[in-house]
Design a protein around this nucleic acid. Structure first.
Lengths: 178, 178
DNA sequence: ACCTGAACACCGTTCAAGT
DNA sequence: ACCTGAACACCGTTCAAGT
């Protein structure tokens, strides 16, 4: 999986083939099938491996607004660190798993915010979706292309930050007047 | 392009090959290359063709909140009508074009809302990104899987509606206190 | 201007045979 | 339990030759 990720980081998901991966590992292409069912599950496994890295970086103190922002920023850092993989992975269902650290951390923060219990999961799912959209459009260049004629990396970061603030305010509004 | 879209609707983007498309058109595979540069641009062209269908359905009267909601709903209807294509297309840069009807309509509505001119494009880009996220996670099943143990189509629609309302409120708040 | 057949350089995956 | 070579059924694309 680590070797596959290296190749994807270098050349993109489309350029990864079982045969190239085998060559990179100095092994017969067919040997891979003793460790992985097929290419699709290999990609799903790489995606899950990378997505699980949110875990370590998650803080548990400070105001909920700050924790939420931190979670979003970590998700963004992860996406930018593995652009090629994540751009592909967002199309599939493996980026945010229901039993994964990302979702668990998000629910924990929302509970700490005082949001009514029955709102936690639906609002959490919507927030996760919205942030996925921000990251996907940053990875594929759509946001930069739309928001200005001469977009920079700093504009991407600013747009992300602005949007996350909007989401935090939205949650706050829902706590104040449920 | 229409034939390609039919095949994609039926079997998904992965199952589309130049050779199958040619067979479907009762033509030699190589003939296709006289009408399209390669497979990647064919897919981009299909995406643009479908994305342009927002055009006709866009209203120009009523309060801006209602127009914005209508735009989002139309985008959702389009995405659901061509799930296989759109799931793939969201990964690329061709869904929302800067000179396309979607973006032009969005900017028109935001101008009508009274949002300061210099906020139109950055806020528009962020809103477009967020809605892309909602649709993508609906198409790949992530939102349904996260928000409840027994999600239905109606839950998807409700989550979408709730999120769009949050976005409209966010814009309204920015108009009231800039 | 469009179509075609042959060919090239790749794919993912199966299977029988090896150690 | 793991590795391997040969083989199968596909790919996208190029190119020279046709109409």
């Amino acid at each position: 999986l680590a070797a596959a990720l290296r190749l994807i980081d270098a050349d993109g998901v489309e350029a990864l083939s079982m045969r190239k991966l085998a060559a990179n590992l100095q092994v017969n292409p067919m040997s891979l099938y003793h460790h992985v069912a097929n290419k699709a599950t290999l990609l799903a496994d790489v995606t899950r491996m990378v997505s699980a890295r949110i875990e370590e970086t998650v803080p548990t103190n400070g105001p909920w607004q700050q924790q939420l922002r931190r979670l979003a920023d970590d998700f963004r850092a992860l996406s930018l660190a593995h652009r090629n993989l994540m751009r592909y992975a967002f199309a599939g269902p493996n980026v945010i798993q229901r039993d994964g650290p990302m979702w668990l951390a998000l629910c924990r923060v929302l509970r700490a915010s005082g949001l009514p219990e029955r709102d936690i999961e639906p609002i959490g799912a919507v927030l996760a979706s919205l942030v996925c959209g921000l990251l996907l459009t940053e990875l594929n260049g759509t946001r930069r292309r739309l928001s200005a004629l001469d977009g920079t990396e700093a504009d991407d970061a600013a747009g992300f930050s602005l949007a996350v603030q909007m989401l935090i305010d939205g949650v706050a509004a829902r706590i104040a007047a449920p």
